[in-house]
Simulated assay, not measured.
Amino acid sequence: MNSLAKKLQEARERLGLTQAEAAQALGVVRELISLWESGKRVPGLAYVRDLARLYGVEEESLLDEGPLRLLEAEGFHLRGAPEPNLELRRWLDFLDAWAEFLEDLGEKPKPLRRPPRALDKGGAYTDRRSVAHLAEQVRAHYELGLDALPDLYTFLGELGVLVYRAPLGPLAKSKISGAFYNHPKLGWSILVNVDTTPGRQAFTLAHEFAHALYHYRTPGIVSRSDEKPPMERFADAWAAHFLVPGKAIRQQLKGLNGEAMVRDAFQAMWLARYFRVSYNTMLIRLRTERLIDQFIYEEWRFYNVSDLAQRLGLPVEEYKVPEAKARGWDLERYPLSVLGKVRHAVEGGSVSVAEAAAILDVDRTTLEIELLSPPKKVPTKMQALEASEFEDVLPF
């Protein structure tokens, strides 16, 4: 057995993974893992990189003559299902590569490492009794008022938070909704599990924003649904109040009923739509604000959300559990600011296409087709129809 084959087997067994589990995480058949570990086949460099991420070892240590060297991610303790761990390491690798890319361009980013002074509670705050006041304070600082928040992906991007999306698998299986990392060079960075509903993603973004504001002294936090230490419970409570302020609920109800009272599950669904949160999040907020009692909460939470949405004329697909994203979910991982900077760098000759593909961890063909090619000039039928409908009013 050659050195690489022996190390692959050693690294897998160190984590207690079967060949079948490793194959599932990598998106290959089990037989291929067996062939690599027997030395009958040699994995390509792309697979070597992913194997190193999966097993938590340095890529070079798989290829050189020395012993295996474990990867160290400051503040992170990656464990559990292999697929999420692979994606989390891919995220961490990207952050380091992105920081190096910005340095090569001569840019000196001013990373967010701690909140504005008016919001700073010391970086390790967990008192849940104050979450309502703190959430209102953050809204006031960023001039968000009490209405529904803007798209949180856009809002956090405008603040300078680097938000990355990754397919970690359904929450019931992976247990991971997101992660926060106070990167040494990039500052606040957030990962969101996109194998969850839009409502859950909004909650995750708010939850990780809470970690950034109040737990920035802990460099890395993986938010797991099966573990609720004080920081996680605080972030959950703060996110709920940040997304749906109690005062705002009552204002909306008075507009509907003339009084602060929820009459039926349809109104709860309407409020969820208004605040851009999930139906379950809204029910929890109505319960914690004592606008519904425990008996009503227990009854309403079992109503079919798709049925409620359809009967209110809302898009039903937004309330269905999404299918798990394919492992080839590539450029959609990155915020528009990252993709725009890479495109401009390639067009300006600062980096080659191959270098850009390496930074974004995609093959060159994917990069050229999905990012660098010019827009198609054939309009859609809807676009053509709309253009004809506007002919009599243009120019404004």
Rank of each mutant, 00 (worst) to 15 (best):
V244Q: 00
S225W: 06
A235S: 15
I249E: 02
H241Q: 06
L256D: 01
P229W: 07
S225T: 13
H241A: 11
H241I: 00
L243K: 00
A239N: 03
H241F: 00
A240W: 01
A239F: 04
K228H: 14
F242Y: 06
G246F: 03
K247H: 03
P229F: 10
Q251H: 06
L253R: 05
D226Y: 06
G258H: 09
R250H: 03
A239R: 04
S225C: 07
A248T: 03
G255Q: 14
L256E: 12
W238S: 04
A240I: 00
M231V: 07
K228N: 11
K228S: 14
S225Q: 11
P230I: 08
R233E: 14
Q251I: 08
Q252M: 11
E259R: 15
P230E: 12
K247R: 15
Q252K: 13
G246E: 15
A235C: 15
S225F: 10
S225P: 09
E227R: 14
L243F: 01
L253I: 05
M231Q: 10
I249K: 01
P230K: 08
L256A: 08
P229L: 09
K228D: 12
I249V: 15
V244F: 00
K247N: 02
D226M: 05
E259M: 05
M231I: 02
R233W: 10
F234A: 09
K254I: 12
E232W: 09
A237S: 15
R233A: 14
N257L: 04
F234W: 08
D236H: 11
A237Y: 12
L256G: 00
G255Y: 06
R250M: 10
G258C: 06
K254E: 15
W238C: 04
Q251M: 08
L243A: 03
E259Y: 04
